[in-house]
Simulated assay, not measured.
Amino acid sequence: MRLPGAPRPPRSSLDLARSPTNDAEVNAMRAAAWHRLGVVAIPVDEITDPWLRQAITNEANRRWGRRDGGSSHGR
């Protein structure tokens, strides 16, 4: 119970009462990252060109190492 006029508790990523982020919110965060920082966040599975998808996968593997799980080749 909160007392009237009491400050709200701090927000946390551990706040289980908050609903999960939906697709529209995630897309808005991607757009903001692009416009503000020049950072692109595109799911690899959404890249339809096989050559481009593999080039991006190769660069990500070079920088941060291979992903755990998921498909190890192709789509």
Score class of each variant (00 low, 15 high):
64 W>C: 13
38 G>S: 07
31 A>Y: 00
2 R>H: 10
8 R>F: 01
33 A>K: 05
28 A>V: 00
70 G>T: 14
39 V>K: 05
65 G>C: 09
19 S>T: 11
71 S>F: 10
46 E>P: 01
19 S>I: 00
26 V>K: 06
52 L>T: 03
57 T>K: 07
11 R>P: 14
71 S>D: 07
55 A>R: 15
75 R>Q: 08
4 P>G: 13
40 V>M: 00
57 T>V: 12
68 D>Q: 15
48 T>V: 06
72 S>F: 11
52 L>R: 15
2 R>I: 04
6 A>M: 14
1 M>A: 11
67 R>G: 05
33 A>W: 10
72 S>L: 15
40 V>I: 06
17 A>H: 01
53 R>P: 02
35 H>I: 12
32 A>P: 04
14 L>A: 14
44 V>H: 06
41 A>M: 07
49 D>L: 01
42 I>E: 07
51 W>G: 00
62 R>G: 04
11 R>M: 09
68 D>G: 01
13 S>T: 12
38 G>H: 14
39 V>Q: 10
48 T>K: 15
12 S>G: 09
39 V>Y: 05
65 G>W: 09
66 R>Q: 08
58 N>T: 14
13 S>L: 09
61 N>I: 15
70 G>N: 08
65 G>L: 12
17 A>C: 04
4 P>A: 15
4 P>I: 15
74 G>P: 00
47 I>H: 02
28 A>S: 14
42 I>Y: 01
40 V>L: 08
35 H>W: 00
12 S>Q: 08
13 S>M: 04
71 S>Y: 10
29 M>D: 13
52 L>E: 14
39 V>W: 07
15 D>P: 03
57 T>Q: 04
36 R>M: 06
7 P>K: 11
11 R>C: 09
36 R>T: 12
33 A>R: 09
21 T>K: 06
57 T>L: 11
21 T>Y: 07
19 S>V: 07
74 G>D: 13
7 P>D: 06
19 S>M: 10
71 S>L: 08
7 P>Q: 11
48 T>G: 14
48 T>S: 13
9 P>M: 04
25 E>K: 03
8 R>Q: 06
18 R>C: 03
1 M>V: 05
14 L>P: 00
74 G>E: 13
4 P>Q: 00
6 A>V: 08
75 R>V: 05
2 R>Q: 03
34 W>P: 00
49 D>P: 01
44 V>S: 10
17 A>G: 10
39 V>E: 09
48 T>D: 14
52 L>A: 07
